[in-house]
Design a binder for these strands. Structure first.
Lengths: 245, 245
DNA sequence: ACAAAAGTGTTTACAGTACACCCATGC
DNA sequence: GCATGGGTGTACTGTAAACACTTTTGT
């Protein structure tokens, strides 16, 4: 099996997390320092991406690259777009960077975007050679290449998918309160929801299982915890979130 | 400007039409005949696709290729997937074909799928060098490459999109009856809908404008015709189809 | 005792569902 | 005059939306 990289195809992962306050995204720091001095010439950020190997399929590559850069495995991943504009790598600093890391800056590269969802608290980011960290989606640093476009597409895709599937739960811990679930929707759709109506609607969903457990060490009335049961979801009528917002 | 083709990136258009009975898709005939005799060795079909040019963006290429093969312009097009499995062109007849048309059959090619929607009656297919024709989506001939996968993805994507946007109207003529609209939903979702309830729900939508016009030359009571107003849709509350099905 | 978030119920209006018959036209 | 699809109304049930106060815990 060859491990040659394909110079024309890359993947980028837009990995989202939710810290009960904000939607966050994982970014990799990109520091370009001249070969002669260590003074950085510029610093910005990229999504979690790289070129695929010749023997890999796209999602396989996305999972490998994510694991290599962050240690993260087995998360929800879904393809959402391919970008290939001829000028997408042609900004000056991107050209310098590509040259620096030994890529041909004139290569036409298509990139395929995957969005990933995970429970931000259960994941330890195991930093490798590059610094990877969480940024609030509405307070982003400068991004390389066309990664701002990529991210905007990912957010839109996340919004649509959350209305027609149960992926919302992959952003929460196994045990969560209804308020946390509500905040998740409020943050992603930028609205405020009525607490009583939200709870009424949610409690109807049979796959939302109340646990014999409450929050602890909170300085207010501790919340009832719930879990999502995929099993129950599969065998029941799959009520969804279409009318939540 | 260079017109070199990019050997690694292709696009495929899954163009849907609705003839008031079935969902149909445009396919291109692929006839391989030996260089020495004219007897065809195999015949099958492909989606409407080709490689992009080096200077083109993806959608631009999709529109060009669609126009070249069918004469069709200015239709609704939307990207829905990228496929790049290493073995996707490795079936024997595909390899033979690639060689035949002068492509390197060992090239890794990523293809980006666009689905297109149009009013089947308003479009004249201007056949070029290749034969292009409509096939019912649930009665397909053998397809080349991974085009069956592609098409399945496109159908799923169409179903999702039809629930959260107004693209359904791009499959209908400008003037249409409520029964035609209902049949469209029934065909795509494989259900039967109650006529009275469907009409009640639809007539609520302010962007569905009744015209001073009825069907003619039909051997039954002629139907009231309606049009879709994008303008009204944009300025009103954008009620949609989420609960139609 | 106070701060902080959890939790709860009722009313009203609108939308969903189920269901059967008459109507206008071409032939 | 008959075949074909167009067009209509009602009763019942269920969900959406608006809205304010009490409860439980930590400090």
């Amino acid at each position: 099996m060859s491990f040659r990289i394909n110079p024309n195809i890359s993947v980028d992962c837009v990995v989202f997390g939710f810290d009960f306050r904000q939607l966050k995204v994982l970014l990799v720091e990109r520091i370009f320092q001249s070969d002669y001095s260590l003074k950085p010439i510029f610093t910005d950020h990229t999504l979690i991406g790289n070129h695929i190997y010749e023997h890999e399929d796209l999602e396989e590559a996305a999972r490998r690259i994510l694991k290599d850069l962050t240690g993260i495995e087995n998360i929800y991943l879904e393809q959402f777009i391919a970008l290939a504009h001829p000028e997408r790598l042609k900004k000056e600093r991107d050209q310098i960077w590509l040259q620096h890391i030994g890529h041909n800056p004139h290569n036409r590269v298509i990139t395929v975007g995957y969005f990933g969802l995970l429970d931000i608290n259960a994941m330890e980011i195991r930093a490798g050679s590059r610094k990877v960290s969480w940024f609030p989606v509405n307070k982003l640093p400068a991004l390389a290449f066309d990664h701002h476009d990529m991210l905007n597409h990912a957010v839109e895709c996340l919004k649509t998918r959350m209305r027609v599937s149960t992926i919302a739960y992959t952003l929460l811990p196994k045990k969560f309160s209804l308020s946390q679930l509500q905040t998740l929707f409020e943050v992603i759709y930028g609205t405020n929801l009525d607490k009583r109506n939200f709870r009424k609607k949610m409690i109807r969903m049979k796959y939302l299982i109340p646990l014999n457990e409450k929050q602890s060490n909170v300085s207010h009335k501790p919340a009832q915890l719930y879990m999502f049961s995929r099993e129950v979801y599969e065998i029941t009528n799959r009520d969804l979130f279409e009318n939540i917002i």
